[in-house]
Every structure is written in structure tokens, then in C-alpha cells.
Design a protein around this nucleic acid. Structure first.
Lengths: 344, 344
DNA sequence: AAAGATTGCTAAATCGTTTTAGTGACAAGC
DNA sequence: GCTTGTCACTAAAACGATTTAGCAATCTTT
């Protein structure tokens, strides 16, 4: 890394510093000085300058130069926030890679990577606006601030948004209102009298939609507003703490809807610690955004996005956009799938 | 995407096709044709050609051009296999980002991303050898084939290897032999008579080390070789199946060491289904590579890499290498940490 | 002493894109 | 008829690296 506050050091600067040509420097940098017969003394001088000046190569320049002009290099990215769980993201990644692998040949080459932004600060991600980083991206786990930013810009490349609705973007998400409604129906259907919804403090489009639909359904069927428990974050620890507080305060709960499975996992612990049984004393419904709901104890009943379908749709749309087989943005709603397991 | 088997379409090719200059094409591509007053008819012709030829911009070229020459752009990557769990990777990522954020200023800019390779096929990752993708990387979750590949090459940039030993690389890992030994001691210390080790079929350096040390310790303390259960993969499903088979065959087990926590989670289910209690009937020890071991039921006792320490060390070393504050590769061993929870 | 080989280096082209400065052609105004 | 202005576009440089071809100078060989 260069000494601070300086212009980045380039091969030319090193060359000038040593008093040789840029070619000589490049030769040394790529360890070709033997075959190209640079004098050992020169090599040493260059090496020293490289160290002293703190040279860091410019990867964009290297890449441009190194690319075989006969082959396409296509960069795909999955953009998610640091704070969000990686389960769905890694499924998307695997699917993107699968489709990329199928299309990779002698003339075409894909790189797929995950890039993360601080929740609410997507706008700060370098290379997003000037299209200098990706040929196509899947964006997910945005907060309202990010959504506002996206809505106000048109990114000039293939973009598919996962799990939220944004005007002028291709979006794939579970049908609004459905998940929450069906979760409420499941709990009420089992005879729950005191249904509760557990949400994180920072709400995304999907979590707010689930919570609202749940509450609306409970209200319309029972006339009473369900309790809302707000956890500090998305993690099991947050969920456990929130539920512990709720139960500790003696406020009842015989049916719990967690808008993200991490919270449900935490809730499990708090419920069991309180000496209650799942599902007999408290039935729990999650959404299926955790990799291991089958291994929760008891396995978590989920009603939420059908991940397989969503991932497939999203990746297909991404490739269609890049192929220009699709040009107009579409919203695709995937009806939530219900997997009855043992928790409700 | 271009029609297959063709040279990639460039701005120049479009220009030639339409009969205008590259500048005109670029102007249209960046939607500046209004302010730069291109004739609407020309714009249309260019747009059509862009579509017809299937233009895909070259991001390397764009990036090179778009970069502000006053600022450093540093690319950091975390390289992991598709198959491996993302827990530790995401912790590394967050730590890298934290250090990067702390060093970001007007003259310096970091991009951090996760790139994945197919296990055993790291060598195929584009831009690794020619250093045209990253200024520095953390590599983890490699298989023996990948290790061989790495040992045979010197990557000309900052590389830190996580969780395995490789000659000529900076490596950070838990002290070889320790985890497995201590796991054995814990189980034997509780009086287990039939300790068992659960491993995936494809062994990485760390998993093989853990399993071997465990077996060696059991052998030396009891004279008998512990059973080895081999699961098809890393997942809870694999673990559950393997253990179900083992227990079903009537082969005993009163203490289980899982060399990766995903397997332990699966084992939990099989053990409970068999009507046994954890830890009374079967004590379980894991390694702490799962995010939510605290929320396993019962919480999983772990002896393994101290993630916090490892992540901190690895990221510090990465930045030291880039700063050239360190030049010689070092191996850093982190003694495993023991977290006693309820499973053993 | 001339021819050829070796040594040690450089100039210039190239990768694909964007931007800046500029250039004709034509119209309008005096 | 000359200036001024607008329109529609182009040439060329630049981003930072690598590589190819080539050029002097020195050393060997005959």
C-alpha cells in the first residue's frame, strides 16, 4: 500500500524513480527478468523501488491487458447487506454459478461473486452507478433507504431484485400479503387465542409485509390486534431475548409467527426455558429462510417464499435480461409454499 | 450476450457496423446523446446495433477508464468453495470490511467480495494466477487438490490461508492435533466407553487432523480404536443419515465427536429419534464452526478454532502483507478454545 | 578486422472504454 | 459578404499494465 495521501504508484512512477523504462519494471514485477536478461543490479534497484514506493498493482488495468480478446468475460454479482443471513444468498449464488457453468465455453467466461454493502448504504458501493463492476446483479436484503436509492436511479445493466418490489426493476418475491395471512390462518386454525408476531426492529419490505398481513388477518378473524414483539436484530440471540422479556412480563402467547427464522430459533430457546412445549403450549410458524429448519427441534413449520422457485426464477430472469430476451421489467410473484413440520 | 462463438462485441465494432465513430456509440451507451446532440436517427441506429450485435461492455476497460487516478482502488477477496458452510467466511468478510473501512479515505478505496470455486478446482478460477483480480485474498475451504495446486505456485500478491498449512504461505489455523485430542479427553473424561468420530467423506486438512488426533488419543488412553462414521457430505442431512445407519446397526455409541458442526446437528436428530438423550446417553462434542451452536438443543459443547482470534489474526496478516510490513510467510497456530455447553 | 552472438535495455502497440477538444456544414443576423 | 451560432459528429488522448520487436553496445569467433 502506498504511503498515505499520495497518488497511487504506477509502473511508470517506479520506472522514473529508478531511471529505467516501464517495460523493465513490468518485467521484474512479473518475474521475467531472467529470460529477458535484465542485469541483476537493475533488478535489485527496481525491487527496492517497488518496496519503497509501496506499489500496488491496478487490477483493472491488469485485467484489461491480460484478457484474451477472443473470449467474453462476464461479471455477475450478488449484492447483499452485511447484516443479513447468507442462506438464500448462497442458494442464489449456487444457482447462478450452475447456469453460468452451463454457458461457459471456449469463448465465454463468467465470474460470480458476492459483494456486500452496509444495510442502508447500497449507494456507496463503488462501480454500481458507472457500471464498471458488474454485467449483471441480483440485489437483495435492501433496507428502505436502499430501495429509495434504487428507485431513483436506473442501473444501466441487468438487475434483478430479490424479495422486494421496486418500480422499473425486475423483481421476484413471494406474493404480497400471502405469507402473513397464511401464517395467521395456521395459528388460528389450531385454536390459538393469543397469537403473537415477532419482528426485528429494522423492517425490510418483506418483513413489514408479513407482519402487517398477519396482523390484518388476525384482526379480521378475531377482532383483536395480535401482540407485536420487536427484537433488536435478526439473530437468534435477539429473538431469544425479545421473547424472554415478553414471556417474563407475563404476557401470554400460544402461537408465534416469526418473520425470519433466525428469530424463531431464538424464540424456541426462550419458550423451552420457560418450561413451555412446542407446539402444545406455543405453536411456532417461520418463513423458511434458514438452511436448517428441518433440524430445529421440533422442525419448524414454515410458510414463506418457495426458495427453489424463487432462485430459479431470479436467475433465469437475470440471464434473460443479459441476453436481451427480456427488456421490460416485470414483477413476479411466487405464491408462498407451506411446509408443515412439527412446530405448528 | 453476444451470439455464440464470436469475438466479443466492442464499441468499435458497433461503430463500424453503424458507420459512426466509437465516440458516438459510447455517447449513446451512457445516455449522453441529448447533451451531446446526436441526431435522433443516429441514436436509433446505434441502439439497434447494440441490441442486434448483443453488446456486453467490458467491465475491466470501463473500470480502468472510470477510476479516479487520484485514488487507490484495492480489491480484496475471500475465496471459498461452493460446498463449504459460509459461517466462518462471513465472519472473515465482516472483519476484512471493518479493517478496510477503517483505512478508507479520500485517497483509498476498498472492494471486498466473496468468490467461490468448485471444491478441488481452485486452479480454474480466472485471474488468480495472473493477479488480475485481487490485490489480496484469504483462501479457505480448500481440498487436497487445491492445496497441491497452491503449493506448486506462488501467487504474486497478498495471500493468507485459513485453516490449513501450506508451505510458503501465511497460514492461520488451530494448533494441529489439539482439537481432536481435547475432544477425546472431554468424552473419555465423562466416562464414555464407546467414543465415535463422525467425519464427512471428503476430508480437508483440518477435518483429517481432527479425526486422526481424536483416534490417536482414544487409542493411547483406552487401547481401542474408536469407530469412524463417514457421512456422505457436510450437511446435517448427511450427518443424520450416517448416524441413523450406525445406531440402527446396533453399533453402540455413548460419545460423539463431529469434526464439523453441521454433522453434529444432524446427529442430534438421529440420536433423539433413537430415543437417546444428549448428553446422558450420548455426549456430543463439536468444533464451533456453526453460527448457532448456542441454539442447538442442547447447546453444543465445542472445542475448536477460536474464531474470533483466527479471524482477527488472518485479517491483520492480510493487511500486513499488503503493506509489506510482513514479507516472509509465517504459520500461526491458534490453540483451540473450549466452550463447555450442555452437550458434553 | 569483419561478422555474428550476446547482453541489457527501450519504444511503441495493445487491451476497450470514455471524454475533451475540435471540426466541418449549414443557417441566421447584420 | 462576413461574422456568429447551432448542429452533428470525429480524432485523439487517457486510464495502467504487458509484450513484442528492435536497437545499441559489448564480447566472441574466424
Amino acid at each position: 500500500m502506498a504511503r498515505s495521501d499520495q497518488r497511487p504508484v504506477t509502473v511508470h512512477m517506479i520506472a522514473e524513480h529508478v531511471g529505467v523504462s516501464a517495460s523493465a519494471v513490468s518485467t521484474v514485477l512479473s518475474d521475467r527478468h531472467e529470460e529477458r536478461r535484465l542485469a541483476p543490479a537493475t533488478v535489485e534497484k527496481i525491487r527496492k523501488a517497488v518496496r519503497d514506493l509501496g506499489y500496488v498493482p491496478n487490477v483493472a488495468a491488469r485485467r484489461l491487458r491480460a484478457q484474451d480478446p477472443e473470449v467474453h468475460h462476464i461479471e455477475l454479482g450478488i449484492l447483499t447487506s452485511f447484516e443479513a443471513p447468507l442462506f438464500l444468498v448462497s442458494r442464489v449464488l449456487r444457482q447462478v454459478q450452475r447456469m453460468a457453468d452451463a454457458r461457459t465455453g471456449p469463448g465465454r467466461n463468467f465470474s460470480v461473486s458476492i459483494a456486500m454493502f452496509h444495510a442502508g448504504r447500497l449507494r456507496e458501493m463503488a462501480g454500481l452507478l458507472d457500471a464498471s463492476r458488474f454485467n449483471g446483479v441480483v440485489i437483495t436484503n435492501t433496507l428502505p433507504d436502499d430501495d429509495t436509492f434504487l428507485a431513483a436511479t436506473t442501473l444501466p445493466y441487468a438487475v434483478v431484485v430479490l424479495g422486494r418490489r421496486l418500480p422499473n426493476y425486475c423483481c421476484v418475491l413471494d406474493t404480497p400479503g400471502e405469507s402473513g395471512r397464511r401464517a395467521a390462518e395456521i395459528l388460528l386454525g389450531r385454536g390459538c387465542r393469543r397469537p403473537v408476531v415477532l419482528t426485528p426492529a429494522l423492517l425490510t419490505q418483506s418483513t413489514v409485509d408479513r407482519a402487517d398481513a398477519f396482523c390484518a388477518t388476525v384482526r379480521s378473524q378475531t377482532g383483536a390486534e395480535p401482540a407485536r414483539i420487536v427484537a433488536a436484530g435478526f439473530t437468534p440471540t435477539n429473538g431469544a431475548e425479545a421473547l424472554r422479556t415478553h414471556l417474563g412480563a407475563g404476557r401470554g402467547c400460544d402461537g408465534l409467527y416469526a418473520v425470519t427464522d433466525g428469530l424463531a430459533l431464538g424464540a424456541y430457546q426462550a419458550i423451552k426455558h420457560a418450561g413451555r412445549k412446542i407446539p402444545q403450549d406455543v405453536a411456532v410458524v417461520g418463513v423458511g429462510d434458514h438452511e436448517q429448519v428441518d433440524f430445529f427441534d421440533p422442525p419448524l413449520t414454515c410458510v414463506g417464499p418457495s426458495n427453489e422457485t424463487i432462485v430459479e426464477l431470479i436467475v433465469t430472469q437475470l440471464f434473460d435480461l443479459m441476453n436481451r430476451r427480456r427488456v421490460k421489467p416485470v414483477e413476479t410473484f411466487v405464491p408462498p409454499s407451506l411446509v408443515m413440520r412439527a412446530s405448528a
